[in-house]
């Protein structure tokens, strides 16, 4: 077989110039993401920053045996398991609602998007006013004869936080779904209607299939945002909140303050591993449900 050297050279040149153009981005990603993560993994495998002796998985075992870590992990999982599906489902419903011919559609869209622009400190203030033991909600409930609920210091603690999470994130998720719905081929829906398909059938068998990449994206985004809720919880309840609000980030933040870098690194690596597994599952699910609609 005759080897086309010129073609080979062109191909190599192409790959090299491609690599050269990718290099700055890759370097940036390496310096700011990959390298620091490598350092975290390194710290999770040594005894301490002072005595850098390799101890294997001892730090991981210590973390998994720590009852506070287990509590934090359970709370975080519980929160994500409730908040993320709600964020996706409610966003889809809102998008469908705004897709219909209703009055004040534009104003409603703005209304749902505006919570994104509110600073965290203001949100925290408002939530304290509403959910404080002597706050607006308890005063309202007492009119109907209900006892006061200590929202932030009882087992009901996750409720105001889930409400806060949904209030903040629904708007953006809704916009993503609205964009996806706009991009759907209208012809297919018309044909389905002509063929006698009802709105429910159209939604589950056509629209949802086409929305599956967006559902995956919004789910991942919501999952990431569900971890960021630590910021508001920390401002509302401090470094050591009541049991129900104690999240993984509390554990890690406190470990940093207490100079327990090993615990912090091990917990971070464990959390990253769980995230990778979850996202992998989501990708597989999306692949399965959306294979008909993707190229």
């Amino acid at each position: 077989m005759k080897i086309n050297h010129a073609k080979l050279r062109r191909k190599m040149r192409g790959r090299l110039s491609g690599a050269a153009f990718l290099a700055p981005s890759f370097l940036g990603a390496a310096i700011f993401y990959i390298l620091p993560f490598g350092v975290v993994v390194y710290y999770s495998l040594i005894k301490s920053p002072l005595v850098r002796e390799f101890v294997g998985f001892e730090n991981f075992v210590n973390v998994l045996n720590n009852s506070s870590f287990r509590m934090a992990a359970a709370n975080t999982l519980k929160f994500s398991a409730v908040a993320v599906p709600l964020a996706v489902i409610l966003a889809i419903l809102l998008a469908l609602m705004l897709e219909c011919k209703i009055p004040a559609k534009s104003q409603l869209r703005t209304f749902f998007l505006s919570p994104m622009m509110v600073p965290v400190a203001s949100i925290v203030l408002i939530w304290q006013v509403i959910f404080h033991y002597n706050g607006v909600l308890n005063n309202f409930l007492s009119i109907f004869g209900y006892d006061k609920i200590d929202w932030f210091k009882s087992d009901y603690g996750q409720i105001p936080i889930i409400v806060l999470f949904l209030w903040k994130n629904l708007g953006y998720n809704m916009i993503l779904f609205m964009a996806a719905l706009n991009n759907m081929p209208k012809g297919l829906l018309e044909v389905a209607r002509v063929e006698g398909a009802g709105p429910v059938y159209c939604f589950f068998n056509i629209k949802l299939r086409y929305l599956s990449p967006t559902v995956l994206f919004v789910t991942i985004l919501s999952l990431i945002n569900s971890f960021k809720v630590f910021r508001e919880v920390y401002l509302l309840t401090g470094a050591y909140p009541y049991e129900s609000l104690y999240m993984l980030q509390h554990f890690m933040n406190n470990a940093f303050v207490n100079i327990d870098y090993q615990k912090l690194s091990a917990a971070a690596v464990l959390m990253a591993a769980v995230m990778v597994v979850l996202i992998a599952i989501l990708f597989v699910a999306e692949n399965f449900f959306g294979k008909d609609v993707e190229g």
Binding site: N66, S67, S68, D150, Y240, Y242, E243
Partner: peptide, 20 residues
């Protein structure tokens, strides 16, 4: 709040701190 309620909350928060 009652002293009992407050003691329960302190118990919860302090336990988290100590176990950490």
């Amino acid at each position: 709040k009652t002293a009992q309620d407050v003691a329960a909350i302190i118990q919860s928060r302090a336990s988290i701190y100590v176990n950490e």
